[in-house]
């Protein structure tokens, strides 16, 4: 069987499209690359969806934590502490238990126990908490002059937030936020590993890597393949966030732009 054929058969296997049975013997490198790559679809899906949705909650949490109103501040603080202070592993465990019992009381919540929704919700809360803390830190370090300038222009409320506070916050937070995105993509491997069941062998990259390691009893091929895919993914994430960073900083003089880069990764 040629490699092209394998890719046709198994390229979308993680979504349930293509050959139903996984390869059973005589595993080729091509099969391992194809299936583990197919599983990456899930990792990318979880990562992107959680980031995209978590971003908004994170902004809200950061504003909440920075608020002077106790009723806004305390819930935001507790939410961030709870999700940043406990391992994702344990969050998944509790979430699955909770979703299971919710489903038994309210049958229409059926989808919660499947990974595509249930795990996504956990990752969404998790990344929102981490990013919220990052944004909060950035919010506090917005130069006083920027706000004063906005006041001088007569900007208030929403327009001040949208045109001054928010862009500056993002600009300051971006390097750390990039790191958070990388960690989040890595965290997606936990979904099927510890918490959510795998239906009809449609799993993520780690699941398939585990499948091959289990069948060939040789961990030294599938896991490095998985590592290879993730290094690629990480590079793409860094590149993508770099493009946005450039856009966020396009008004700054060149010397200052490079300075931004130095701060990269100082904090998660």
């Amino acid at each position: 069987m040629s490699c092209i054929q394998t890719i046709q058969d198994y390229g979308l296997r993680s979504l349930g499209i293509g050959e139903r049975l996984l390869p059973r013997n005589d595993f080729t490198l091509c099969e391992q690359f194809t299936l583990i790559g197919s599983g990456m679809i899930w990792n990318i899906y979880f990562g992107i969806m959680a980031l995209a949705t978590g971003f908004f909650l994170a902004t809200a949490l950061a504003l909440g934590k920075a608020s002077t109103n106790k009723w806004l501040r305390k819930p935001a603080e507790w939410f961030i502490f709870l999700f940043r202070g406990s391992p994702l592993f344990i969050q998944f465990f509790f979430a699955y238990f909770l979703f299971l019992s919710l489903k038994q009381t309210f049958p229409f919540l059926d989808a919660l126990t499947s990974a595509w929704l249930g795990a996504l919700i956990v990752l969404f809360f998790n990344t929102a908490a981490y990013s919220g803390e990052i944004f909060y830190g950035a919010l506090r370090s917005i130069p006083k002059g920027d706000i004063e300038a906005a006041d001088a222009y007569g900007m208030t409320g929403w327009s001040r937030f949208r045109r001054i506070v928010w862009p500056t916050m993002l600009r300051l937070a971006w390097p750390a936020y990039t790191n958070e995105a990388i960690f989040l993509f890595h965290a997606t491997t936990l979904v099927f590993f510890s918490a959510f069941p795998v239906w009809q062998q449609r799993g993520d990259a780690l699941y398939y890597a585990g499948y091959f390691a289990d069948k060939t009893f040789n961990p030294f091929i599938p896991y490095p393949i998985l590592a290879f895919y993730f290094i690629l993914l990480t590079l793409v994430v860094i590149w993508g966030f770099g493009v946005v960073n450039k856009r966020l900083n396009r008004h700054l003089p060149v010397a200052k732009r490079t300075k931004m880069k130095l701060r990269l990764n100082l904090a998660r």
Binding site: I182, F185, H186, A187, T189, L190, F193, L206, A209, G210, A213, P219, F220, Y223, P224, L226, A227, F230, I231, L233, T234, L235
Partner: peptide, 11 residues
């Protein structure tokens, strides 16, 4: 840094 820690721990 590019590899998830689980993948690393596995082998």
């Amino acid at each position: 840094r590019g590899v998830p820690d689980i993948a690393f721990f596995m082998f």
